[in-house]
Computed example of a mutant assay.
Amino acid sequence: MGRASDLFLVLLVLGSSFVAYNVVTMIIHYSSSQNLVVDSMDDGLLLDPIVEKPKNLKKQKTTRAPFHIALTATNAPYGQWQCRIMYYWYKQKRNLPGSEMGGFTRVLHSGRPDNLMDEIPTVVVDPLPPGLDQGYIVLHRPWAFVQWLQQATIEEEYILMAEPDHIFLTPLPNLAYGGHPAAFPFFYIKPEQNEKIVRKYYPEEFGPVTNIDPIGNSPVIIEKNLLAEIAPTWMNVSLKMKQDPETDKAFGWVLEMYAYAIASALHGVRHILRKDFMLQPPWDLETKNKYILHYTYGCDYNLKGELTYGKIGEWRFDKRSYLQGPIPKNLPLPPPGVPESVVTLVKMMNEATSNIPNWDSSS
């Protein structure tokens, strides 16, 4: 990489520091180069046939490498009930054989404590100043991680960046390998198809846009020190993207995901792409050989068990139906014919709500 590239990255990192300084000021004022794709849960890293593993990954790890689970959240009821369910399943899976799950932190970017402080390990950080997110609440995430990494004492050397709507299906090992973080590949993150916009933040001297992995920041397992380097750049790129009308229009609700992918590439970081890291019903039909269930999409079916996506079904589960309070206990099971992934989701929801104390409208 030439001098121009080095200068750009220095300026960007300095810009990140400058943005961070300005954010703090405003808060006070307002009071290896290869794309690694892994198909299955296999310690030998079953690879997509067109992809090879870098030489420095040929050796299998022989020691445990615990990782800390961190998720950013608000104090809104919608996020609170999801965090409670996620934390329940973390506790169920953490100490099982095969797990390398370490400590847990909810990074609460409301700027003040809430009523879950005694239930879930939590660190309170500041939100962005009013109006800076332009209604895009996910923009608080990189700023929350910057603050948390600066102030927290984290025993583990690795961090899993997770989200409230994640459920651990099985004990999760550390899928990262040294300086290669592990991430889930999203089909809708397409740097090559958006090269004109991407080049605003990833100049040509850094290399082809294929250096940018098709990922977001979650789920990602990454070395703590590496994340501390990337996070300010991630924040800076996110803010710049949101302030650019063309980028904002093109990337929409996945803007912050692109920002993390680009920030990682600017630091020369490539991720091991683990297809088995996560599944997303209703599109993924089975939970077999998957680690995390992500219930971001609505699940709508008729009584014949047929998917009616885009149309409210006779049977449905959609987390957005519960914006003002927690899901009820004992959700009805789907009708016969609905995929196993959706049935598992409902059963795990019901188990959690039956065992979490004080699961009611006061959550």
Rank of each mutant, 00 (worst) to 15 (best):
F8I: 14
L9T: 07
L9Q: 08
V10H: 14
V10D: 10
L11H: 10
L11C: 12
L11S: 12
L12T: 15
L12E: 15
L12R: 15
V13H: 12
L14C: 09
G15E: 00
G15R: 00
G15T: 02
G15L: 03
S16T: 03
S17F: 11
S17W: 08
F18T: 00
V19W: 06
A20M: 07
A20K: 09
Y21I: 12
Y21K: 10
Y21M: 12
V23I: 13
V23G: 02
T25I: 06
M26Y: 02
I27D: 06
I27M: 06
I28R: 10
I28E: 14
I28L: 15
H29S: 05
H29C: 05
H29R: 14
Y30T: 13
Y30M: 04
Y30W: 07
S31D: 04
S32Y: 02
S33E: 07
S33I: 02
Q34L: 02
Q34F: 01
N35Y: 09
N35V: 13
L36E: 07
L36R: 03
L36K: 06
V37Q: 12
V37L: 15
V38W: 04
V38F: 09
M41V: 07
M41P: 03
D43P: 03
D43F: 05
G44M: 11
G44D: 15
L45D: 03
L45N: 06
L45G: 01
L46D: 10
L46Q: 12
L47C: 06
D48G: 02
I50W: 10
V51N: 14
V51W: 09
E52V: 02
K53M: 00
P54H: 04
K55Y: 04
K55D: 05
K55H: 07
N56I: 11
N56L: 12
L57Y: 02
L57Q: 05
K58W: 09
K61L: 07
K61N: 08
T62W: 04
T63N: 11
